[in-house]
Write a protein that binds this DNA or RNA. Structure first.
Lengths: 225, 225
DNA sequence: ACTTGTGAACCATTTCACAGCT
DNA sequence: AGCTGTGAAATGGTTCACAAGT
């Protein structure tokens, strides 16, 4: 049913968010919702929601809106397509951020399964972090191959990022979530998503400084977002 | 000198990156560089770099390219404009992620100064995390006001995110870096940047699964990115 | 010969606005 | 009356391509 003319990464992100929001809604008793309701929860416009769902190929009814259960199924069908079993990931770099990520993605709430964490630091290897034993980095390729890992999470220092990314890519990883503050160059068939925390931080600081001063006469209007 | 027709958040992010890359270059002996060199380090196209620098208002020379030192100054002048002193930030939520962020932004490498970390958990209050003593959340507004804090970092559970964000906004924060997996609704003069790690993770997994299989005859071409 | 600066073209994404349905 | 689905317009961002400078 999904009319999949392959959607952009941006759209995939929103669909992922919709799915999460619908899951929350399903725990409540609600069975249907309108585009503007979902839009409000997602922090975007109703037109955007309708467009996304249209692209998905799901149809709502003008009378009742979208059937939460069915829409959820449709989203799952699209987002989980071709996932034989669940997606597996490895994590390289067990510093402060790496540990936080291990706990974040290690739990069962996550859609991906973390199957190994790795570091070069001898003091970390062998220790247990949030339920995952740290292995030496050399073992990463072997685990990637044996466990059919598709995603590598990179939380190593900038200097080592490219090197470790190469290791992951050669072992067969198809996507990298990069927290190192360095752009990576990898062959085009590996999808890379950069999460550069210091860029994010500096950007917020800049925008914060430059945001317009609050107007005195703010009318408490229903903000149009 | 900067021809500032206020630039988009996206552009600000790239300028921030350029600055960091130039700082690295200045530590080496290099004095000039061409747009394509900076582009390669930043992982983008030369045209994009030229456009950004043009928007900045800096001029290079066709013969030598950009003067690293002067371009750096120009970037700093733009990015740090109106920053009386350095930007200050507070962090709410000292879980695994919050601790990692405290260490990440707490050091002196960061452009922003973390002036307080807060949590509601009595077992955390009073303890020291990466050089910052955790204070009870109730004290956050007072610190924001006294220390002229402009940025709030939100690393609390989703359920509390909106509530704590309101607290920050009422106390006068102008920007929020939100790690909670929930969109926030705040008055329009507060800039919000969402870093949703589970969306990022799921998106990478999806794109990874759908990335084209490597072609057999890959020619090792100089990838055009 | 190789660069920069930049108008114009291109492309992606979002929003508008309205026909059609219930 | 109020919604959805969607073509069309608008917006925003990136890349092209070339004149001009060295």
């Amino acid at each position: 049913m999904p009319r999949r003319e392959n959607l952009s990464a941006r759209t995939i992100g929103r669909l992922t968010l919709y799915r999460r929001l619908l899951e929350q809604l399903m725990e409540a008793e609600q069975t249907h919702l309108f585009s503007h309701e979902l839009a409000e929860r997602a922090g975007i416009t109703a037109a955007q929601v309708r467009r996304d769902i249209m692209n998905l190929g799901y149809l709502g009814s003008p009378a009742r809106g979208y059937d939460i259960h069915r829409l959820g199924e449709c989203l799952a069908e699209y987002l989980d397509a071709d996932a034989r079993g669940e997606d597996r990931a490895v994590l390289a770099g067990v510093g402060n951020l790496g540990q936080a990520l291990a706990s974040y993605f290690g739990g069962q709430r996550s859609k991906v399964r973390l199957v190994g964490i790795f570091d070069t630091d001898a003091r970390k290897v062998g220790r247990n972090f949030h339920g995952h034993r740290c292995h030496p980095l050399e073992e990463l390729p072997e685990v990637v191959r044996q466990e059919k890992v598709v995603v590598g999470i990179l939380a190593v220092p900038a200097e080592k990022a490219q090197e470790v990314a190469n290791l992951m890519a050669e072992a067969g990883v198809r996507g990298v979530l990069n927290f190192a503050p360095t752009p990576l160059t990898l062959s085009a068939e590996v999808y890379v998503e950069n999460v550069d925390l210091s860029v994010a931080m500096e950007r917020v600081a800049f925008m914060a400084r430059h945001s317009r001063a609050p107007k005195e006469d703010t009318k408490e209007t229903t903000h149009k977002q």
